[in-house]
Amino acid sequence: MSRQGGRGTESKKMYWYLPFISPSASLQLMNSELFTLTYGALVTQLCKDYENDDDVNKQLDKMGYNIGVRLIEDFLARSNVGRCHDFRETADVIAKIAFKMYLGITPSITNWSPGGDEFSLILENNPLVDFVELPDNHSTLIYSNLLCGVLRGALEMVQMAVDVKFVQDTLKGDSVTEIRMKFIRRIEDNLPAGEE
């Protein structure tokens, strides 16, 4: 009897720790194949749900946008990058830090427009498209359009309106994947009237 009581108190003393996950914790690695297959499942499901490819592209962009507006907070917290002074610096941060951090690749930056407001990200290999072969009836599908949405959403949260689109895609037979980014304007913070 006493023993049982003893055991009872002992079991009450047991408690569990939940691991504390801080946003600045070291990068947790995910199997890239799992990631690729998950994204593939997402895209094919969208293709089943929507009749035409344009709708799928739009939907992917929208989902990416929603990811981007959240991801930027995580990115800023983890990477400690400050405010960029010009668009070139932004391009560097995107290619060398953001892509490295989230996709494990470092795209190269080329084809700056003379005005310095437009550039291309060249992805030698895109982890989203391993295994993928576009069937003929999806010729207008932009498979990785989610990335465009992510970039657009993230930059919008740091007061930059940009236009992002794919101009080359390895899935469509091009040798590299090229994402074109165009700076449109700064989004001014709307300060309340009367405050400086």
Binding site: E33, A41, C47, F131, E133, P135
Partner: peptide
């Protein structure tokens, strides 16, 4: 195996793949 990993391929279908 690579074909099976293609999200556009449904297992059990005939294989139409350029690769």
């Amino acid at each position: 195996t690579d074909i099976m990993c293609n999200p556009f391929y449904n297992p059990g279908d005939r294989i139409h793949s350029r690769a």
